[in-house]
Design a protein around this nucleic acid. Structure first.
Lengths: 191, 191
DNA sequence: TGCAAAAACTAATAACATTAGTTATATTTA
DNA sequence: TAAATATAACTAATGTTATTAGTTTTTGCA
């Protein structure tokens, strides 16, 4: 049941990730991925639903890997410390997986249930990190949105080379997170 | 010196903006823009340096328009109030110019001096808005990065439909900005 | 050993960007 | 007013890509 050289999804995602990391997401085409795998591009349709399907798979893979990295960063931590760890892990993921991180953004279809689920997992993780703050439910949801905006905004601008000035980036990130955390304590009377 | 129907840059940018706003930046092609203008796509090379050139022009136009909108929002304001106005104007711009805002991101070349200049103008404006806070120079630069991350992150996630939950978006934005401002006051002892 | 399914293949089409070379037109100039 | 020139349109052609249809090959199982 497994004919020819039989490229599998794993190999496809690896090849696409490698191309995305080194040349950017625009260079991830069925042609370039097929070439790297040593097959012809129509053969990819046996594994993936066209270019959009490949992008979806890549986005999904990226979100799962990101979730895993974030989980790993916050185990054994709580409160301010956990939020700081979350932010640094997020940005670090974007830095060391530039292509995959790009893939998680330009998702072709926001309504895809698997993508939605993967996104929700990250939101839930963030909610749990905030549990120790003793925020009301709705407050916590707004704060989750705030943290996502912060992390994604920083990672995205950094990746596109938008921070031009010669000023330490890690220092900027630390201050950004600390400032927002200080704001939470000031705005909502919580631990 | 002005032969034929003579499409000009203004018309090209208008057409491209319209396509980007209604169908997204991926749909902005030389073919689609030419079609809307009633000319053949090779004719566009008389005005623009290929597809990348068109994207550059569009990014530049978007940044200038964004800068203008931000300027307009902060005149006559100072301190916290000015920062709030800046954030709301930024997000409002992204909302009502979805295509143009996308164009300001996927800039083909970060090194383009005109794009750099346009970006610097926005950074400078933000610096001036922060003047009233009495921050040290380096502190102010970190805060500018923070605000950019905040604003862009929120606008970007909102635009991609990433905020799934049924929770008021303007409320989230207000709280995000207010929380960060409160953080500034807590972290740096300033007015 | 043969059969069926899976995954490769080739061939063909359509959309796009881009280059080269040509034509038409509007302004300028003689 | 008429010719010259510059500008911006055009057509034709090439190469890349995604995608579909139909074919062949190979592998695992009966």
């Amino acid at each position: 049941m497994t004919p020819r050289n039989s490229v599998d999804m794993r190999a496809i995602l690896d090849a696409a990730t490698e191309i995305a990391d080194s040349n950017g997401m625009e260079e991830v085409t069925l042609a370039s991925v097929a070439k790297k795998l040593g097959i012809r591009s129509p053969s990819l349709y046996n594994h993936v639903d066209g270019l959009d399907g490949l992008r979806r798979q890549l986005a999904l893979h990226g979100l799962e890997k990101l979730h895993h990295a974030l989980m790993n960063a916050v185990v054994g931590r709580a409160g301010d410390d956990a939020v700081r760890a979350l932010g640094k892990a997020y940005v670090e993921f974007a830095r060391s997986n530039t292509g995959l991180y790009q893939a998680t953004l330009r998702a072709p279809d926001v309504e895809d249930p698997r993508l939605k689920q993967a996104g929700d997992n990250i939101v839930h993780l963030t909610m749990r990190v905030l549990e120790g703050f003793g925020l009301k439910d709705e407050e916590a949801l707004h704060v989750v949105r705030g943290l996502r905006s912060l992390f994604h905004g920083f990672a995205s601008i950094e990746q596109s080379g938008g921070f031009g000035l010669p000023l330490d980036l890690d220092e900027s990130l630390s201050r950004l997170i600390d400032t927002y955390i200080a704001g939470i304590h000031a705005m909502y009377d919580c631990k």
